[in-house]
């Protein structure tokens, strides 16, 4: 039934009720209410109303989230916090590398002196020097671990970028968007690092296999 016709019918029924004196017949009220419900079924069902309410709630939730994210100043995260953290970590790698090489200089100097020492003492000094060289491997391992963290931070940065784009100008973001991570390729288009998926850096102890396990794989 057309909406106009339904409206006219309901208005006529209401006018008839208005003229009625005395008590209302509940059945007549039910009939009118059903007519109203029937009239909206064509455009918006009860399920549709529920969906509409849900969408409205979702819109309110998104607006609240957007306001909360704006308060966090996500543009600061990308323009200040993450670059600062990356710089700090890079500095740690540089500082430990420099310190390690200073240790090398000193130890190599000591080792050179062993030629002037009694053989027994020279042997003990050489053993100690070897131990120091072995221990200095920490710089290589920590450097690789920190590089992994820097890579993770860069991924966070690109996710924040995506978030900023999703919410648009309302967050008053000035930072330009970064292109999504892309695998490096050679000029011919071949992957620059075909073993990239295998590169995970130093494993945490619970994920790593031991040298003995590796030796077993070599039979």
């Amino acid at each position: 039934m057309a909406v106009t016709a339904v409206k006219e019918k309901i208005v006529a029924q209401l006018q008839q009720l208005h003229k009625t004196e005395g008590s209302l017949d509940p059945a007549e009220v039910v009939t009118i209410v059903e007519s109203v419900i029937d009239s909206i079924e064509g455009d918006l069902t009860a399920v549709g109303l529920k969906v509409y309410a849900d969408i409205e709630a979702l819109a309110r939730y998104i607006n609240t989230a957007r306001a909360e994210i704006a308060e966090l100043r996500p543009d600061d995260i990308n323009s200040e916090h993450l670059p600062a953290a990356t710089d700090e970590l890079t500095a740690i790698v540089g500082a430990t590398e420099q310190a390690t090489h200073q240790i090398f200089e000193a130890v190599e100097g000591i080792e050179a002196l062993t030629e002037k020492m009694e053989p027994e003492i020279a042997e003990q000094i050489s053993a100690a020097v070897t131990s120091i060289f072995e221990a200095c491997g920490f710089q290589d391992i920590t450097g690789q671990r920190i590089t992994k963290v820097v890579t993770a931070l860069q991924q966070v940065e690109s996710k924040v970028d995506a978030l900023l784009h999703a919410f648009g100008d309302d967050l008053k973001v000035d930072a330009p968007a970064k292109a999504p991570g892309k695998k490096k390729t050679t000029p011919s288009g071949a992957p620059a690092r075909p073993d990239e998926d295998l590169l995970n850096g130093p494993q945490l102890p619970e994920n790593a296999i031991s040298q003995d396990d590796i030796d077993a794989l070599f039979g």
Binding site: D140, L198, N200, G201, Q203, A208, I209, I214, L217
Partner: peptide, 13 residues
């Protein structure tokens, strides 16, 4: 290398 996952070792082997 620090790459000590089994698949890395097998790949190298």
């Amino acid at each position: 290398t620090a790459e000590s996952k089994t698949e890395n070792v097998i790949a190298a082997k």
